[in-house]
């Protein structure tokens, strides 16, 4: 439909006016926001309060650990690795905070936090509640190796020492056993003979 001249002119002027007016309205709104204080939080200086029960970096209280390996078995991504060495009878490993007697040297307790999926499944099976999630969430590193957290209280030499101790003890025990067995075995052929001899 062809519009007549007057109507066209009216629409044209109205468009012009609308264009200028709406731009000015928009500019007023943005100008107001120019003086609105910022709503963003300045992260490193100001931090949002984290809710309770957040799941972030894992922590192991190694003093309480009895080396039962349940957490490692629960982990769906296998980020926990535990090596243990049995203690020898003379050693006193102390007791955990809830009164359990420790029987194993935990020679290695490594958590590869880069693999961790923060599922918290390792926390529940722990009998001594020594592994738990903390609220630390800033632990980026430059080297990937630095994300492998080693919690074991024993250093490598000590761990090796414990292993040697245990092996020595084991060997001694074997030797004793062997000796006992030998001692037991020696009279053995005589035993049936003895009564016969006697």
């Amino acid at each position: 439909m062809q519009k007549d001249g007057i109507e066209f002119m009216r629409e044209y002027l109205k468009n012009t006016w609308d264009g200028i007016y709406t731009v000015l309205v928009g500019m007023r709104i943005t100008f107001k926001h120019l003086f609105t204080p910022a709503v963003t939080i300045q992260y490193p200086e100001v931090k949002v309060k984290l809710p309770d029960r957040v799941r972030n970096r894992l922590y192991v209280n190694i003093d309480d650990c009895i080396g039962c390996d349940q957490c490692a078995r629960a982990c769906p991504v296998s980020c926990i690795e535990i090596d243990t060495v049995k203690s020898i009878p003379g050693e006193d490993l102390g007791i955990t905070s809830n009164g359990k007697k420790k029987a194993l040297w935990v020679t290695r307790f490594d958590i590869d936090i880069a693999k961790c999926c923060y599922c918290q499944l390792c926390v529940f099976p722990c009998p001594t509640e020594c592994i738990y999630m903390t609220d630390v969430y800033e632990f980026s590193e430059y080297e990937r190796a630095n994300l492998l957290y080693k919690f074991s209280a024993l250093n490598q030499d000590e761990a090796a020492q414990k292993k040697v101790n245990y092996e020595k003890f084991q060997a001694e025990k074997e030797a004793q056993k062997a000796a006992a067995a030998a001692a037991a075995a020696k009279p053995k052929p005589e035993t049936p003979a003895q009564p016969s001899a006697n």
Binding site: H33, P37, V39
Partner: peptide, 13 residues
């Protein structure tokens, strides 16, 4: 800075 202020942010600081 202006874009930050108009969007209620802080901008480079």
């Amino acid at each position: 800075k202006v874009s930050a202020w108009m969007q209620d942010r802080v901008g480079p600081n």
